[in-house]
Amino acid sequence: MTFTVYEHPIWLESEPASMHPEGFKITERALKHCNIDPSSTILDVGCGAGSTLNILQNENNLQGIGIDPSANLLSYAHQMNANIWLTQAFAEHLPLANESIDAVISECTLSLFNAKKAIQECQRILKPNGYFIVSDLYARDPENIDKLKELPGGTSFPRVMDQEKIIRLIMINGFKISIWQDCSDALRQFSLDKLTESSSIDPFDLIIRAAKAKLGYYFLIARKK
């Protein structure tokens, strides 16, 4: 059986939250900023094994919907919690009606997809004033962003963008950005081991390239105009 990077069983060995830096801390910080009541519908774009959805449901009493391109991860998510609504889809083509969702969460997944199309899709399905909550990698030194492009596909690295580009993409596609925060310290504590294990990236090479491009981590909240 072959796996894409994030379908690799190593991600499911221990606590699934470790698929992205900071685990749920950023998600929780984001929820505090937003005014989301239990009747809201939240979409997790690239929900993977569904861990964020479980947290939303169990600790925040919020009902989420998850989409992910990986049937393997979705089936795992379903085994863990049969009580969440999951569907296999790409963020570029969301099987959801216009203006049907109150908040979209995208945790370390934006640069896995075609970011522009994904943002446009999220904008389409969000209700007016809906929240777009994103955390992801970004290059703090745009001049050296090419260093990341040479890393193997299947991970976010080749598509990582710089702050200006991310903000511009979100703004020109019908959002107003209310919060941008740098959380790069989270990246330092995030263990790259599973990533290098599952993607066969040379960890030395990764560290060198990440240091050159000043790889960082951000979290932002935007609202649909």
């Binding site: 330092r188 263990s191 790259l192 081991d193 290098t196 294990e197 960890p203 030395f204 560290i207």
Partner: peptide, 14 residues
């Protein structure tokens, strides 16, 4: 076998 190595607060396994 896997070995942790670290430098200036960054650590990873090789």
């Amino acid at each position: 076998g896997k070995v942790d190595i670290s430098y200036l607060g960054n650590s990873f396994q090789v």
